[in-house]
Computed example of a mutant assay.
Amino acid sequence: MLSWISYLGLAVTACIAATLLPMQSEAGLVALLYLDPSAVYGLVLAASIGNILGSQINWWLGRQLQRWQGRRWFPFKPIQLNRAQKWYQRYGRWSLLFSWVPIIGDPLTLVAGVLREPFWRFTLLVSIAKISRYSLLAYATVHVLNS
């Protein structure tokens, strides 16, 4: 049986992984499932909540981003922001269902904030993506462990 620290650690790792900081929460989920496969529902819930929260942080940062755009230290060039905005406008809010995809998912959640996607809609679409991602990973892991 896993302690509450395991669930909290997974949620924090998943939260950090959903921001623009590089981190992998999938390895933590698989390792914890290896230790206790019966904890699958709690682990998927902890990872999903943490990852959704991290995406919401990105959304909030996106809302604040344009305020700092003229600063010399600003990390994005105007052409990068323009390209990301055009991509999001082309594919629309439904592209948030791909927020789980490595490399493009985290910047996508940031751009949704820049373009002022309503928070409730953003959270709903990102939640569907993140819960599906961790559920499929957990199912595959438990299936392999039981083989």
Rank of each mutant, 00 (worst) to 15 (best):
R72Q: 15
S6N: 13
Y34D: 13
A47Y: 02
E26A: 05
N51C: 12
D36L: 01
R63K: 12
A18M: 03
P102C: 08
S99F: 05
W59P: 07
G105S: 08
L35I: 02
T109H: 01
A129L: 04
K130E: 12
V114F: 09
Y41A: 10
L124T: 11
H143P: 00
I131T: 10
R72E: 15
G70D: 11
E117V: 09
L125G: 00
G50R: 06
S135I: 03
G113L: 06
S55G: 15
S38E: 08
P22L: 10
T19C: 04
L81M: 12
S6R: 07
S48A: 14
L96A: 00
I103L: 14
I131H: 06
K77H: 15
D36Y: 07
L21M: 07
V40F: 11
Q64M: 14
T123G: 09
Y91P: 00
I57V: 12
S6E: 14
I103T: 10
P107A: 05
F98S: 05
T19V: 05
L29K: 11
Y88H: 08
Y139V: 02
G92E: 00
L45V: 10
I52Y: 09
Q80W: 15
I16R: 15
S55T: 12
N58E: 14
V111K: 14
I79M: 12
T109P: 00
V101K: 00
W4A: 11
P107N: 04
L108S: 05
L21V: 09
N146R: 03
I57Y: 11
Y7P: 06
S147K: 10
R116Y: 12
D106H: 13
Y88R: 09
A84L: 12
L61T: 04
G62L: 06
P118Q: 08
A112R: 02
S127N: 10
S132M: 13
W68Q: 07
L8R: 03
H143R: 13
L20N: 07
T109A: 02
A14Y: 11
L33T: 02
T123Y: 15
